[in-house]
Design a protein around this nucleic acid. Structure first.
Length: 197
DNA sequence: CACAGGATCCACT
DNA sequence: GTGGATCCTGTGA
């Protein structure tokens, strides 16, 4: 079952938690790739110093976060990596959920081809935000893509809901966010080997 | 127009 | 454990 419009209208903290265990689907010409989301982080624009849209700041880059939930916000970090975020909450409320790590379910060969690294460890294919974007062939060309109406990229509920233990922790690499850097707004599935360090 | 710096990854020591 | 890659974005002149 594909997640619908209403799911994405919730606040970022709720969506970040509920996205764990759901399936991220990427339809490429050659092959369909399916991955389970195992790690997320919430970014709450208005109050969050770690968010690009802190204090509802509008720029060309953050504009997409002001859309109503259900599209993606993709941007380039360190000149190298594309990071995938899901825009959530109502129109003009700039909140987003960063997908930090996924576990490959289908399309592993395609993922390996996209990643093109020496390491043979399966975990290294998708255990980080830059890695999973490369693995799923996601770049800024997809910025603003609509997950609800689109069929090249979307998220669906797993058919058999697995039991897993949810862990909250501090977000990663946002030391500049002052008091907000210690918020427990990172969520992951306990004991899943694809969760980033 | 010029510049500083970032929600990271990989290779190597 | 550490450093370099590398380019887009926001800011200020």
């Amino acid at each position: 079952m594909k997640l619908g419009y209403n799911f994405y209208q919730q606040d970022a903290l709720t969506v970040a938690k509920e996205l764990l265990g759901t399936l991220l689907v990427r339809e490429l010409e050659e092959e369909k790739i399916v991955c389970k989301i195992v790690e997320t982080e919430a970014y709450l624009g208005a109050e969050d110093k770690g968010c690009h849209a802190y204090q509802n700041k509008r720029t060309d880059r953050t504009e997409v976060m002001f859309n109503s939930g259900g599209c993606v916000y993709i941007y380039l970090i360190y000149g190298i990596h594309n990071l995938l975020n899901v825009v959530v909450n109502s129109k003009n409320v700039p909140e987003a959920v960063l997908i930090r790590a996924v576990e490959p379910i289908r399309g592993i060969e395609m993922i390996k081809k996209n990643r093109n690294i020496k390491s043979d460890k399966r975990e290294n294919l998708t255990n980080g935000p830059g890695k999973l974007s490369q693995a799923l062939d996601i770049d800024r060309g997809l910025n603003g893509y609509n997950l609800v109406t689109g069929d090249k990229l979307y998220i669906e509920q797993e058919e058999t809901e697995e039991n897993y233990e949810l862990v909250c922790s501090k977000r990663i690499n946002i030391d500049y966010a002052e008091e907000y850097k210690d918020k427990l707004w990172r969520f992951y599935i306990k004991n899943n080997s694809f969760v980033s360090a």
